Amino acid sequence: MNRFHVHLNVADLAGSIRFYTQLFAAPPSVVKHDYAKWMLEDPRINFAISSTGRAPGVDHLGLQVDTADELAALGPRLDAAGGSVVPEDGAVCCYARSDKLWTEDPQGTRWETFHTVGEAATYHVAGAACATDGTTCTPGARTAKPKADKGAPCCAPNSGCC
């Protein structure tokens, strides 16, 4: 089953945690020094906030799926929508390990479809191909190149690796 995902950049993590805890009537399921996440059932949403130095506001939207097969099924839908689809296998981002497909809508809003396969000890892997600015793990689909093979690093903008 799909779960809607929203990731916001915030300037005041503690204040934002207080606000969203009251709004959702539930504490976050994950809290780190730079990140918090609520996995809510009503509405069914993965709502995340982070304070990694980016401008406050919507970082990206997405759909979280429960299985690799569900992620694979979203690929043709993303292709049909018309945006460039950028796969990112084995990403370490937001204290999780996930396989992802990225795209952008016509306005440039980044969309992440992903299947989480485990936890990670860090927000992102410093120097990873998709951590394009050192503080985030969301590549720009318009500048990212799809990887050529499963063993190659993924989606570094203009990296020439693909």
Rank of each mutant, 00 (worst) to 15 (best):
V86S: 03
T109V: 15
A80M: 04
Y95A: 05
C94P: 01
Q107Y: 06
D89S: 11
A73G: 06
C93I: 11
T109D: 05
D105T: 07
G83W: 06
D79C: 00
A96G: 13
E70K: 02
P87K: 12
G83P: 07
T109P: 03
G90P: 00
T113Q: 04
D105Q: 05
S98L: 10
T109N: 15
W111H: 09
L71T: 04
D99G: 05
L101M: 07
L74F: 14
G75L: 06
L74E: 06
A81K: 01
A81D: 04
W111M: 07
P106V: 10
V92W: 02
G108H: 09
T103Q: 11
T103P: 08
P76M: 09
E88P: 00
E70W: 00
E112H: 09
W102Q: 09
E104D: 12
V92P: 03
A73D: 13
D79Y: 01
P106K: 05
R97K: 15
W102I: 08
V85L: 06
D99Q: 04
A91N: 07
C93F: 15
T109C: 08
G83R: 07
V85W: 01
G90Q: 13
G108K: 08
D105C: 07
R97P: 02
W102A: 11
A81F: 15
G83E: 10
A81C: 05
T113F: 15
T113V: 15
S98F: 05
Y95W: 13
E88D: 14
G82K: 13
R110W: 02
A73K: 12
A73I: 02
A91D: 01
G108R: 06
R77Q: 14
R77S: 10
R77Y: 07
S98N: 04
D79G: 00
P87V: 12
G108P: 09
C94L: 08
L101V: 10
E104F: 01
L78M: 14
D79T: 12
G75Y: 03
T113E: 00
R77W: 04
G90S: 14
A91S: 14
D89L: 12
L71W: 02
V92R: 00
R77H: 12
A80Y: 00
